[in-house]
């Protein structure tokens, strides 16, 4: 598939992204800060927002997904880039200790491993993910998500069931 980069100069593109996303979805916050379109969306809207970004606005790449454990809720950030300097940062938060959110692997295939990593490190479950295995930690004998604030380092736990 040939990649088509979005047209227009940086400011025009940023405004187009902001408008395009704001018109189609009920966003909680949306603004342009320092050349970045910053958007806060509700949890249920995230896959739709990213689908709009990909299909309608033509932003070709999902750069990364980050998760922050805020103790009580999780803060997720999806960063989209268009390879020409413009960035769209979609933020959302998930309440609860067992976070679940819709997957975006169907929209941006690269999200596959990003979501697996988020699941591995924070236990964020991505509903509908085709292959939600752990990436870094071993699948057997390790029943923890090490980047959670509630995770305490214990040498013993590391060796559960391993000899």
């Amino acid at each position: 598939m040939a990649l088509t980069l979005p047209e227009g100069d940086l400011q025009t593109r940023l405004e187009r992204y902001l408008e395009g996303l704001g018109n189609r979805h009920g966003l909680e916050e949306s603004e342009i800060v320092d050349g970045v379109v910053r958007i806060v969306a509700k949890k249920v809207d995230v896959p739709a927002v990213l689908a709009t970004a990909r299909e309608t606005l033509g932003i070709p790449h999902l750069s990364f997904i980050t998760v922050v454990d805020r103790q009580g809720y999780f803060e997720l950030t999806y960063e989209l880039i268009d390879f020409r300097g413009a960035t769209v940062r979609v933020k959302t938060s998930i309440e609860g200790d067992e976070p679940v959110i819709g997957m975006v692997t169907g929209i941006y295939p690269t999200a596959n491993w990003h979501e697996r990593e988020a699941y591995d490190m924070f236990g964020v479950a991505f509903a509908g993910h085709p292959d939600l295995r752990r990436t870094y930690m071993w699948q057997d004998h390790f029943d923890h998500h090490p980047l959670l604030k509630s995770f305490e380092i214990s040498t013993k736990r590391t060796f559960e069931g391993l000899r």
Binding site: Y136, M137, H144, P146, F151, I153, T155, R157, T158, F159, R163
Partner: peptide, 14 residues
């Protein structure tokens, strides 16, 4: 990295 959550404490363990 001895007390890291993912580090083996010496190759002679395995």
């Amino acid at each position: 990295f001895l007390d890291g959550y993912s580090v083996l404490m010496g190759a002679d363990r395995v």
